[in-house]
């Protein structure tokens, strides 16, 4: 693999299951990690709903996103940033989420975007 490294930020903004955005973002995240590029994920707006534990989509014939997100750690993807305002607006607390996350406010998000070479939105 070449020495060229670019840092990637994936911005998630959509709830899971209603459309393919969450799954597409996950596929891209895994691909970036296979190429060993530094990667962070940011969950804002409805995408914070992707992080709810104990999802059970067998009844709607889809794959379990919460199981897949728990796997990110095995790919050394451990930079999971979450918009604190988005959690608050939905009556959720950081303790409701079983993944290891980092809470960010609006200015934290601006800084995060500035710090990365490439930003992909889903």
């Amino acid at each position: 693999m070449s020495d060229t490294k670019k840092s990637f930020l994936i911005i998630n903004r959509k709830a899971p299951y209603g459309c393919s955005a969450a799954r597409d973002a996950l596929d891209v995240a895994l691909t970036i990690s296979v190429f060993e590029q530094p990667l962070s994920l940011l969950f804002m707006d409805d995408a914070v709903l992707q992080l709810l534990p104990a999802q059970n989509p067998a009844g709607i014939g889809q794959k379990n996103l919460s199981a897949n997100l728990a796997m990110l750690e095995m790919y050394d993807i451990d930079q999971l940033h979450v918009c604190s305002e988005a959690l608050q607006q939905r009556g959720l607390r950081a303790e409701d989420i079983e993944l290891n996350i980092n809470l960010l406010d609006r200015s934290g998000i601006a800084t995060l975007i500035k710090q990365h070479d490439q930003v992909l939105s889903f």
């Binding site: 794959k63 199981a67 728990a70 095995m74």
Partner: peptide, 15 residues
């Protein structure tokens, strides 16, 4: 069974 996906090489090595 745990993650509902097959691992790529790196996570397989880790597991």
């Amino acid at each position: 069974q745990t993650f509902e996906m097959s691992p790529a090489m790196r996570p397989l090595v880790k597991a």
